[in-house]
Amino acid sequence: MKALLSMNKTTIDITHLKKTFGDITALNDVSMRFETGRLYGIIGPAGAGKTTLFRLILQMLIPDAGQIVYLQNNRPQKFDTFRDKIAYMPQTQSLYADLSVDEHLSFFKELYGINQKTYAMKRDELLHMTRLDKFLDRPAGKLSGGMYKKLGLMCALLRSPEIMLLDEPTNGVDPISRREFWSMLQTAVNQGILVIMSTAYMDEAERCGAVVLMESGQMLGAGEPQKLLETAHVANFDDYFLNRGKEDK
């Protein structure tokens, strides 16, 4: 049954979304659409509105204008039923420094209400994938940057989500761990999970199936990375943003 469900197409449809905090406009008239089977990258420098977008999708914030529609096989769903399908990994270090890898996993198992059998399977699979099995008893506070992020990803993947929101998951992670992290994400996408991640690393944009380019709360463009680069006549996304800066002046 679960397998059948995950074959379903999940869509998040965002139209004319706006969010302000006092005088600051964090998001201005943003529309985008995310669908199962792809890895989406929200690309943009700090302050682009990436985290705000995630929080709005998770309904931790309420938009000032516009709407987010959650669809299952093109049928609109209530967020409450949708929420259980989403796993979220916040940008800030959000694990408990004094709890071990193992304790994190079993804590999130309880929160997600996973039964013991599924948990045992999932746990082994994830530990194998992240190669954290040797560090089960190590407290999260004593893990390296890369291992820490992997543990965060494990906690998010534990619930077998249909959608994953990752807010700058590779920020501050060494190049080798970043590569490993990316292949883990690719595995997740291949399993039929809709993955949306944000990053400020422009080189990562090219690895995504589709990207949304953002700057100062505005959406600059969206689509397949190569096509976007061709239309803008630039070699990479660094140049894309740099050229924009010049145009503004």
Partner: peptide, 13 residues
């Protein structure tokens, strides 16, 4: 402060 509240709130809790 740790940011773990955000993580908690994104779970079904």
């Amino acid at each position: 402060e740790q940011g773990s509240m955000e993580m908690l709130l994104s779970t079904p809790i």
